[in-house]
Each structure stands twice: as structure tokens, then as C-alpha cells.
Design a protein around this nucleic acid. Structure first.
Lengths: 334, 334
DNA sequence: GTAAAATACGCAATCGTTTGACCTCCAAAA
DNA sequence: TTTTGGAGGTCAAACGATTGCGTATTTTAC
């Protein structure tokens, strides 16, 4: 492990000053052609590579963006990361990763690490348990821009990229109505989630557009565990006007619900039709895949978030970015 | 964005030297208690945070490990990353991410970026298309240790962590033999993959242990596309001694194979039983999940790779780490 | 032939922190 | 009274690259 060659070393060997070497390597106009050549050749010979850590330090810029997500192994987030990394790489930025495991403490710790690393900016999807936002405020004070992503805090002045579930839900319900279903159930997620509220809003909107009255008993909520979903299903199926179609909060819920229905001897796609929200790339391999699902484009969201951040970095005076992608119903041709 | 406070600033305000401040903050014994207190208090007040970029530069160490994987959004790799990030975080290391998309060019480019970033070490799963290993050699020359992971190059002196498929395959075949199957097919992957060769080896081994003769026509290979798998299935099912059980290269192949068999009116789990290798956390939601699958523990592999790398960083003279995890058959209770 | 302008380069400071090598008291030992 | 010596600091260099400014040498213009 011989010490890597530095500009100084090149300067010494060529009997010129370090500044000349630096400028020569940058093709600065004030350096003569001869010298440029000599420098560049020697640099190539020595396999010279600029020490980025020195440059980062000197330029006060790291060309690194931090990404903090709840769980790297979840399909939704890993697709998002992929989008982030691709877009960042395309602009010569690197990506520093952290996962909060949905814990506030860990999230704060990662924010701190990222701050110390002097990342140029951050993309964050906040942890479920995070109630206190002071760590985000501290980032703002430090002048580090943050683009929130998917799970966004309830604050006014922030940049964010998210996916609006309303449109997709409207399409989903309309689709079912078009197929003749008149009693449509919904298994929603926890009420406090924005995502849940949007789903319900979409549901109501679609009903209203079709001049059907909104029956609140048809919208039940699950805590997203298998048991929660089973309970939700039992509630729905025991209604006197019981649904012939169900919109499930996500693919996991849908799969659990399907299994429950099967156990109860319902014929899927005859007695009971399912529509879901896409989390899993392969839900169509399942026994009874939903007939359609609302796609959230995590990869694209990741890209957009990165784009937004890069724009902010390029122009720090840029106004608050509030990017909303529309979810979209994808019909699964069998 | 007021310039963040520095050691110099603290020194100036307290009318002491920067070195004293530095030592005070590090609890150096040669600084008096009074001064230490004053420094630490002011530091807290000003919200002082050491500039890591300066420290990285000065210490020639970044406490960052680079991770290069083919595809961040694949379940196997995203689970691995999760393990890597967890283990790294536990040791105050950060993780710089890159995905090669299985392209040699991109891989080289990322290696270069990582080198410039002066990551302390790397964890790499090489791209499918990579034939030329010079970029890895250059890392070695630069004194940056690399732990290869899962997809390891065919080189002698390297560190690696991988999962041996032999043991799991032996178990899988034995399991099927135990269930009374005597004609067991295998849909393998491309021959050049180590993973394929290990599967075949396991298959043969299990047969030999049961004193059954190895019939090579029962082992066919797929290029892992749907069409490839269909062809493989057709080959297997048209044999005169046709198999009652099939070991599939992975869950995707298994799912395709199952769909093919269903189309051909085979009764899954009666006429034909499947065992697979786990890529997908949720394959048991599918219509006909494999009765068992060989688990590769990507999360654990990620952890192990990180552990290995950290040990190497702590002791650069450490010998070549060659960690092999054993795959293991997991039986799916229906 | 001389002034002005262009060309090609060197000097030195700077970024923030760390660290080995001094320095300066003051008290206790000789 | 002169040493020692420890406690508590200070100084300055170093890490590697960048950059504003100054300057020597050459070229051009008149």
C-alpha cells in the first residue's frame, strides 16, 4: 500500500508548482500546452487520482445525498432506492444509505451521521413512530435541504414527493362499478395514515360520481396484520348487504383477505372480486391475484425525489417542491 | 445558513488555542478540568459538530463502506443490503450504495467513484456481464479491501461470503425421496453459474447416498425466462420415466413451471410436487407454493460480509476470509 | 526600440482538525 | 537556592487540492 500519488508529488517530479499541476489537470487556459502534456502524462503514468476527501473538504460539498428509509428490504422502498440511485448516479452523485426500522431513535441517529458526513442533501421517508421533528429542523438550520418522500411529515414548509392515492382509488372503484358491482367494500389501513384517508376519499368520490350513496359500514380498517385483516373481512362479510367486491389496502392485505374468503368457501372472482394496491411485483403469481391494482410507481417516485433534490441543490433559493404523482389503476389481463 | 461553528471559532471566543479545544473535546488528560468544562459547554451552546469531511481528510479514513450490487430492487439483494446496513451502522460505519444493473461498464464506473470517495472497504456482488477484473485489481493496489458477496469472481486471493447450495439441495432431494418420490427432476440455471453447478452436485450427492443411479436427462436447464422454463418443463414431462417431483432453480422458475404444469392438467402436489430455492419472501401466498424451499439467508449473508470487512479493516494483515454459509431446506407447513 | 499586452507560471492562503514537539508556570524535592 | 517535574497549554505542520493575485518572460504594436 504505497501512498497514493498526490499533486505535490507530481509537482516535485516535474519541478513545477502544485498550482500549475492542479490547473494543468483541469485544462486551465493559463497553462502552456507543453506543461499540460507533461503533467497529464505523468499523472496517467502514476495512476494519479484526485483525493476526493480533500476536495470535498475544500469545496464544502460532497456530491453525496443521504437516503433514509424505514426498511430497505421492503419491495416498495427497494424499488424507490433503485430509482434514487439511478438518478443520482446519472448526475455524479453518490448515495449514502440508512434505514430507520421505523424507530425514531435510530432515525435521529442516522440524521446525525448524515449531517456529520456533510451530505449535500437528504431524501427521507419518515419512520412510523416518529412524533418529534426536531432532527429535521436541525437539518434545515444546518442548511441541508431535505426532500420528504412517500411518508411525509405534517409540516408546512417542506419539499416532498408523494403519490396521491385518491385518483387511483377513484379509478379502482369506478372499474368495479363498471363491472356491475354495486356493493363494494374497502379494507383500509389505520385511520391516522394519510394514505388511508386518501383511499377513503377516493372511494367516496367515486360513489358520489355515480350517484350512489356512501355507506360507511362498507369501509372497515385493518391494522395490517393477518388477524386485523381477518377481523375486517368477517365484519364485511357479515353485513346484510354484503359486498361482492373489495378494495384492499395493499397486496398483503389482499392476499390475507383472499385466503380468509377461500376458507369461508367464497368463490373468488365470482362471489367476491378483489382490487388492491401494488406493493409486490409478483402478486399476479398468487392463487387469486386481484383483478386490478393501483400502482404507485415507487421507482419513478424515487427518481422524482432525486430530481427535485438536485434542482434544489443547484438553486438553493428554489421554492418548496411539492410533487404529487397520481396513482393509477392497472388492470390485470388474466 | 450561517457558517457552522468550528473549533477555531470556539478557540477564539474562549481565547485559547485550537489545539486546546480539540483536546478538550476529546477529553485529553493534559487539559485542565476548568478549560474542558468551558469548552464543552460553549460547544454545546453553539451546537458545534465536528466537520467530518475535514476529519476524513486528515485521518485518511472515511468510516464508509461501499456496496455494489447488481440490482437494488431484487428481493435477495435488498434483504442483503438491509443486513449490511444494520451491521455497518452498529459499528458507526456508513454505507455508500451503487447498482451495476449487471453491466460491466457501470460497475467499473461505480468502483471508480467509490475509490475516489476513499471508502474504507467494499462489498461487491459482481455483475453478470463482468468478464474483466482489472477494476478489482486496481482496488487491491489502492489498498482498499473488497469482500465479494454471493456472486464471486473466479480468483484465488480474495475475501468472500457466499452460500453453498450443495447442502440445501441434498436436503431438498432427500426430503422428496423421503416422501416416496423416485423420479425427481431438476430445472437448473445456466451451466456456467457456480450456483447451477452446486445444485447439480447436491442433486447427484443425494442420489448417490440413497444408492439411486443418477439420470442426467432428469436435470435440464433453463435460461430463467418464462419460455426457457416452459421448454425445460416440456422436456421433463415428455420423458418416459417422467418425474413426480421437481426441484426448481428459484421461485420465479418454480412459479412459471407450476403454471405450465397446471395448463397441462397436472395436479400439483399430487401428480407433481415442487421444491424451490427461496428468493421471494411471499412465495407461500402463491396458488401452489413449493412444499419446501432452500433458504439462502441473504440478510445474514449481508451481515457476515460486513463483519468480515470490518475485521479486515481492523486488521489489514488478516488472512483471506472465505465464509461459506450453508443453505438450508425450509419445509412449508401447509 | 520601447511600451503595452498577452502568456505561462509561482506564491501563499485556505478549508477544519489533529498531533508531536515545545513552552511556561508553580510546587515540591534536593 | 537551584533542580526536577508535572500540569496545562501553545505552536506549527500536516492532510491534498484549489484559487486570487502577483510576476517574470515573451510577444505584439507603434
Amino acid at each position: 500500500m504505497p501512498a497514493p500519488p498526490t499533486i505535490k508529488e507530481i509537482a516535485r517530479r516535474l519541478n513545477i508548482s502544485a498550482s500549475t499541476v492542479s490547473r494543468a489537470l483541469h485544462d486551465h487556459p493559463s497553462i502552456g500546452l507543453r506543461t499540460k502534456m507533461r503533467v497529464q502524462q505523468l499523472a496517467a503514468e502514476l495512476n494519479y487520482e484526485p483525493n476526493q476527501t480533500a476536495i470535498f473538504f475544500q469545496q464544502r460539498k460532497t456530491f453525496t445525498i443521504g437516503v433514509i428509509l424505514p426498511e430497505l428490504s421492503e419491495a416498495f422502498f427497494s424499488a424507490a432506492i433503485s430509482g434514487i440511485e439511478d438518478m443520482a448516479g446519472r448526475h455524479q452523485y453518490s448515495v449514502l444509505m440508512g434505514q430507520s426500522h421505523d424507530e425514531e431513535e435510530r432515525e435521529k441517529q442516522i440524521v446525525n451521521t448524515m449531517k456529520k458526513h456533510r451530505v449535500d442533501g437528504l431524501i427521507i421517508s419518515i419512520a412510523k413512530n416518529t412524533k418529534d421533528y426536531t432532527h429535521f429542523v436541525s437539518l434545515q438550520q444546518a442548511g441541508i435541504p431535505v426532500v420528504f418522500f412517500d411518508r411525509i411529515p405534517n409540516l408546512a414548509d417542506i419539499h416532498y414527493v408523494a403519490c396521491d392515492m385518491v385518483a387511483g382509488t377513484v379509478q379502482a372503484v369506478k372499474y368495479l362499478l363498471g363491472k356491475g358491482h354495486r356493493v363494494i367494500g374497502m379494507i383500509n389501513g389505520p385511520d391516522k395514515l394519510l394514505a388511508s384517508r386518501q383511499r377513503e376519499e377516493g372511494y367516496i368520490k367515486a360513489m358520489q360520481k355515480h350517484r350512489l350513496k356512501y355507506d360507511p359500514t362498507l369501509v372497515v380498517s385493518s391494522d395490517l396484520t393477518r388477524e386485523g385483516t381477518d377481523k375486517a373481512m368477517s365484519k364485511l362479510l357479515s353485513l346484510k348487504r354484503h359486498p361482492t367486491a373489495i378494495v384492499a389496502f395493499n397486496d398483503y392485505v389482499a392476499m390475507d383477505a383472499v385466503q380468509y374468503a377461500v376458507k369461508k368457501k367464497y368463490k373468488i372472482n365470482e362471489d367476491l372480486t378483489f382490487v388492491s394496491y401494488a406493493n409486490l411485483p409478483i402478486s399476479h403469481y398468487t392463487a387469486f391475484p386481484p383483478v386490478a391494482s393501483v400502482e404507485q410507481f415507487p421507482y419513478v417516485q424515487g427518481q422524482r425525489a432525486t430530481e427535485a433534490l438536485l434542482e434544489i441543490l443547484a438553486d438553493p433559493t428554489s421554492p418548496w417542491k411539492k410533487v404529487t404523482l397520481e396513482s393509477k389503476l392497472v388492470i390485470h389481463t388474466p
